[in-house]
Simulated assay, not measured.
Amino acid sequence: MTTLVPIELIASKIYLIRGIKVMLDRDLAELYGAETRVLNQAVSRNIERFPEDFMLSLTREEILGISQIVISSEIKFSKSVRCFTEQGVAMLSSVLRSKRAVQVNIQIMRAFTQLRKMLSTHEDLKRKIESMEKKYDEQFQIVFEAIKQLIETDEKPKKKIGFTVKEKQKAYLKRAKKKKPSTDGSFTPKAKKIWEAIAGDIQIKILNNVWCVHCRKGSSIGNLTGKIESGMLVLRGTCTKCGGDVARVIENE
């Protein structure tokens, strides 16, 4: 059975704002196959279902900040941008009442769960080691200490899940390739036409703003392919850091 929306695409649209993992109203609307205006109208009609821990309204400063890493060229001009936490996303399917919204939400919940499991891995391992320390003789103490140091060292360079609004565009451009990526033989005709209509600097920004679920951080995409899925241009390829599969959806203008 073909997945309605790949988890990799969803993960690339999860941002870290105010220390909370959220998704933007326009990204959710696109995944649901609806207009942002329609989504927000449905939310406004059922505003009592969206308390502060379900939905955030971004400040002007936050909107300008996130516009540096969101592909849509219109977001920086938006007067109002809403973003939804995991609980808020779950609530959306009850107010939109569309079959696609329900199906997409299942994938979104899986994406949030996958990210949460990644974050908890090191903490669980630490707890298990501490439990083992209490059971075994002191001669093993040096082994346990060495293992814990390895875990802590591995954690230090890791970035938080999602993209923070303070990150600058130049951080991604440093990883950009000078040469415009070729689409010969790797794109369907319609996908190629849409991709080549995008300005070169925007293409670079797209290719260097990909979430890798394997690296657990933003990366670049290589071995690029493209095709149209559910009316959207979907780029697929491999992470330039770990070689794992990654994907990126291009928002409709």
Rank of each mutant, 00 (worst) to 15 (best):
88 G>M: 00
91 M>C: 06
193 K>E: 15
136 Y>M: 08
192 K>N: 11
140 F>E: 04
165 V>S: 08
107 Q>V: 08
191 A>S: 06
170 K>S: 13
163 F>D: 02
115 L>E: 01
131 S>L: 13
173 L>D: 03
95 V>I: 05
84 F>M: 01
119 L>C: 11
184 D>Y: 12
159 K>N: 06
187 F>V: 00
150 L>K: 15
87 Q>M: 10
129 I>W: 10
108 I>G: 11
100 R>I: 05
84 F>D: 00
163 F>N: 08
138 E>F: 12
77 F>S: 08
151 I>E: 00
155 E>F: 04
72 S>F: 00
110 R>V: 02
68 Q>I: 00
98 S>L: 09
152 E>H: 13
194 I>K: 14
119 L>F: 04
191 A>P: 07
192 K>D: 07
119 L>E: 15
99 K>P: 03
96 L>N: 02
150 L>A: 11
113 T>W: 08
190 K>R: 12
56 L>T: 00
74 E>C: 06
87 Q>W: 05
141 Q>K: 15
112 F>G: 06
85 T>Y: 03
188 T>N: 03
105 N>F: 05
134 K>R: 15
142 I>P: 09
62 E>D: 09
167 E>A: 00
182 S>F: 04
75 I>Q: 01
77 F>P: 00
141 Q>Y: 11
144 F>S: 11
101 A>W: 01
78 S>N: 09
153 T>V: 12
58 L>V: 01
85 T>F: 05
162 G>E: 03
182 S>D: 11
146 A>D: 12
70 V>F: 01
128 K>P: 05
81 V>D: 01
94 S>F: 12
